[in-house]
Design a protein around this nucleic acid. Structure first.
Lengths: 318, 318
DNA sequence: TTGTAGGCGTTATCAA
DNA sequence: TTGATAACGCCTACAA
């Protein structure tokens, strides 16, 4: 008994000496077995190579390390079978909890697993009771982006949408629509470009933009991801369209490139590190409901205004 | 015995039924204990949020998943105490192996741990026997970058160095020097800028560049990281210095931004995903020396020529 | 073919 | 205080 208990000083010293001499190291697996506590947390993300999830993992790690948790990281590739496989592995390995990011499995299944192992779902809103979530309603974030453009005097505001199968994309689109409507504008079909979150789809959107006759051409653009915004700007640069002089652009995510690009990109920051921290804090609360942990940081999207947006110079038709 | 052995068909069916009904799941921890094999691999990187290491982790995962290994990921922040701590944890948890990326601990210590647990070191060259490494000698990569500039006719080639404490940085610098010398040029002190791999240090280097009198000003630049190259280009753009018209720029790493920036950046690609794959293959070989695995991909840096480099237009003084 | 004993490395419990 | 013993959940091996 190294830590506590009633031990004679002499014995204690002897034991400690032996420990050093033999290089003894406790077997944590055996310890887990008896303690029913492995000090493992699974983090299941769509793709470990995605920088967003790398940041999220860092957030998780920052909290986990203080509580001596190790992180088992795996990719589920937005495939519910893989998600299930990893969840089963987590149970089999007696993980103390699971952080599941952007799962594609249905809510019922999520609830099912949540009953078997402490589970926190990130980046997806789940209504079912018992499923803990860390989710930022990106409606507000998208609205603030479009409001920024409206405040600058823009009225013809285009939108590049992301992958429709992802919940967050729908919310970003809805934020765009609502913001327009609150200014008595309505989303024009002509100003809607379907993308898939990638750089290339942003490039393609530029082609669509150029196809619009000059007098109706948008003076501003909101893209559902920074990568698409940058794709658009990239092509714009090549075609001599200047940003923000000819068109203001707002992105979403605040990837590292956003601040580095020329011009730097106005965007909505999605705080992945903080989300990872909060997710881990939720998990700790579930694992040890009696213990108290510091309050979680408040999570929200924030608009970062940089150099890709400027006041509208075009006289409005009204 | 679910898999093999001599079992009556009836019993087998009964057992399988019971398994389903009770939702039985084997406890992998207990299984590990008896098998002396945990199916865990530790991946210890400087920082989990760094996109390079995220890619490397993906490479490791691609191989690991086939052999049913789970990955325990952790950050050591280039701190040898943390590295040691994670290595001890790996031993304590009976990890089957460790992939240690860019360790800062001394070789003797590495060899010491390598004797205790299968260990593969990535991104650092270790001479000691018994320590397996995945390391690309970046000398050749750097040389090809500078040779490209020489081939374009450049003679005044500046260099932005990275963090001196990192082995790879030294090799990149040496590659720069050797390449120059092979063309009977020598590295000018005036053309050397000390950076630290960050975007900001690249920006600062631009200030240094501008301080050089016009007639001696370099017509080309090799930066030891893409981020520094982009920082330089960023400031160049702001000051009306055009790339590649006024100065050609080559980076190192091929970060995702390199292909997206305007102009896109000529750079030396460092193949992190492949390195992760190879590292995991080495580890598997160490764990099960008898089994054979597919041959590892050949690893080397490759020069990616994009739009930030162009022929030298300045008449040489000779 | 089936059942049972022993042990993997811990920790907790209970006599001594 | 200390030492012995059971148990965590699994697997191997040997006897039935």
């Amino acid at each position: 008994m190294n830590k506590s208990g009633y031990v004679a000083e002499a014995t204690r010293i002897k034991v400690l000496e032996a420990v050093r001499e033999l290089g003894y190291q406790p077997n944590l697996l055996a310890r887990s077995l008896i303690n029913q506590k492995s000090s493992f947390v699974y983090v299941i993300v769509p793709d470990v190579a995605n920088p967003f999830y790398a940041e999220l993992t860092k957030g998780v790690e920052m909290i986990a390390i203080r509580e001596k948790y190790d992180i088992i990281l795996s990719s589920a590739h937005r495939n519910e079978l893989l998600e299930a496989k990893h969840l089963e592995a987590a149970k089999g390995r007696m993980a103390d909890g699971v952080i599941l990011v952007l799962p594609s499995m249905e809510e019922k299944k999520l609830a099912h697993y949540a009953r078997q192992i402490p589970l926190v779902v990130v980046d997806r809103d789940v209504e079912t009771d018992g499923v803990d979530t860390v989710f930022i309603d990106q409606l507000a974030g998208a609205q603030s982006a479009v409001k920024h453009l409206l405040d600058l005097g823009h009225r013809k505001i285009a939108y590049i949408a992301g992958d429709p199968s992802i919940q967050n994309n729908g919310l970003r689109h809805e934020g765009y629509c609502r913001s327009l409507e609150s200014s008595n504008l309505k989303p024009e079909h002509e100003y809607f470009f379907q993308g898939d979150f990638t750089f290339e789809s942003g490039c393609r959107a530029f082609t669509g933009y150029m196809a619009i006759p000059n007098e109706r051409r948008p003076t501003a653009l909101f893209a559902a991801s920074d990568l698409m915004a940058l794709g658009f700007m990239h092509n714009a640069y090549d075609h001599g369209v200047q940003i923000p002089r000819d068109i203001s652009v707002v992105g979403f995510d605040d990837i590292s490139m956003a601040s580095i690009y020329s011009p730097s990109l106005t965007t909505v920051r999605h705080p992945y590190i903080a989300m990872g921290q909060v997710a881990m804090q939720h998990l700790l609360k579930k694992i040890a409901p009696n213990r108290t942990f510091e309050e979680a940081a408040d999570l929200k999207n924030s608009l970062i205004i940089r150099n890709s947006t400027a006041p509208c110079t075009e006289k409005t038709g009204r």
